[in-house]
Design a protein around this nucleic acid. Structure first.
Lengths: 131, 131
DNA sequence: GATGCAATTGCAACCCGTTTGCATCTAATT
DNA sequence: AATTAGATGCAAACGGGTTGCAATTGCATC
């Protein structure tokens, strides 16, 4: 049994460790397939359902966001969460470090009697190179 | 041929007209299936692919947003766009009329040399009744 | 009103991201 | 080393959305 009830008794497997490493190295949220391909470089026998099952198993430390293309992106939860500028031409993704909503959440929450737990913001447009 | 190249030569069909009416009456963005069921009340022979094809045909006047449940929601483009507070317990959706990003877009755009065309913001949490 | 024709629809099959059942394997404890 | 619950690989299934095709319909022209 684990000493820490939050960590639970999940096992440490090569697949899981590599998945976490891939997400740590990622500069932007990744799709399941992107994670799969990166993990496969090192563990060729991995299958994509292992990725999906780990996204579920690790959900406490992962944020999932479904983009308008219908594919989910996964990223490790960080102290400072980020949002993305997504280029509609080249699909480049640029992270914005400062969350523009931070300052507004309190008001929004009070005005609507709504307890805000999380939010999803993506901004679409054209990047410098594609304008 | 049409007199107006923007309006294009789309035909006015009962299905299309009813779809638009359903969206006009809607108080929140609807899924394809919700639209389908509402249209079906009046036009029982309609099929769901007709809904999807019309979402594509009408894309100039419709905003599509994929939520984290993997389903797209559709709403008519209005002068003032809205965002939603989405309750994670009862799935109630509360519209916020004032877009909290309006004021911030200009800065964001300049700081990142990014031409902002649209954005997607959804806020998740617990509504008054579910807290 | 009849004709021509492209847009639209209904239907069924398909696509693709994601999930699941099951047998096997493996990490972690004894 | 034996035990066993959790994890993995594999293949099949699921579900939202898309597409090919033949039949229908809106609409411009006669």
């Amino acid at each position: 049994m684990s000493k820490n009830q939050n960590v639970s008794d999940y096992k440490s497997t090569k697949q899981r460790n590599k998945i976490i490493q891939v997400l740590q190295d990622a500069k932007r949220p990744l799709t399941a397939e992107e994670i799969y391909l990166l993990v496969k470089d090192e563990l060729p026998s991995v299958v994509i359902s292992t990725i999906y099952r780990n996204m579920e198993a690790l959900k406490n430390i992962i944020v999932k966001t479904v983009y308008n293309d219908g594919k989910a992106r996964y990223a490790l939860t960080k102290e400072k969460h980020t949002h993305n500028l997504i280029c509609l031409k080249c699909t480049k993704i640029i992270a914005i470090e400062k969350c523009p909503l931070e300052a507004l959440e309190k008001n929004l929450s009070e005005q609507n009697s709504f307890e805000i737990l999380e939010h999803k913001l993506e901004i679409y447009g054209h990047c410098k190179d594609c304008r």
